[in-house]
Design a protein around this nucleic acid. Structure first.
Lengths: 99, 99
DNA sequence: AGCGTATTTCGCCATCTGGCGAAATACGAT
DNA sequence: ATCGTATTTCGCCAGATGGCGAAATACGCT
């Protein structure tokens, strides 16, 4: 699955989608959880999930009768926390990168 | 200058703007350089720069008779390189974050 | 003040995005 | 096969985005 950096940023450049990615950074969630989290209609959340999935940010897996989403690009969670810290006025610095 | 994570991602979620941010990660550039880089009209590039500036991603400083842009959020450069590596199929991992 | 170059803003148009309800689909269970 | 629940897709509309040329602005210099 090819990662397109622009698509990743676009995917995260929306309130609901970033919120979803941050939540998935804390653990797996089913769609119902995420609908409750972002406060949008089920179809809208599903659409946002498909954007995140197409960008390779999240992965989905059917488990029982529901679909569980997880963060496929962990560095996104790290960076998001980094920006959140910056938003709080803390000094931001990513130390190391890929290997 | 308040950092809004969503605005940062939105700002970077565009081919030209990401290209600009990556270039600024390598050093300061004037607008003419960036126009040459992205291959869009001068007004369009200027608009993209204003989006990046509003998001706090870049900073501008007048020097002589031209304006020099620089990357105001260095972690963006780190993360962008990280994603670029992922796009090349390399294993991606951000080790440490804010402090 | 006036000139020239660097940069931004304006106005317009075409396209993309995001919201929702309704309808369709997928799949486990009976 | 049918049922029921979980999830996605469709169709529509309103508003945002991105492109450009033309016009406006900003500033250093003489």
């Amino acid at each position: 699955m090819a990662v397109d950096p622009v698509a990743v940023f676009r995917a995260l450049g929306h309130r609901a989608r970033l919120q979803i990615a941050e939540e998935l950074g804390r653990g797996e969630r089913c769609v119902a959880d995420l609908v409750g989290l972002v406060g949008l209609s089920w179809p809208s959340v599903s659409r946002h999930l498909s954007v995140l999935r197409a960008a390779g940010v999240v992965a989905d897996e059917r488990r029982g009768n529901q679909i569980v989403y997880s963060l496929a690009l962990p560095c996104v969670g790290t960076f998001a926390r980094c920006l959140a810290a910056a938003a709080r006025g803390q000094r931001v610095e990513l130390r190391t990168c890929c290997r």
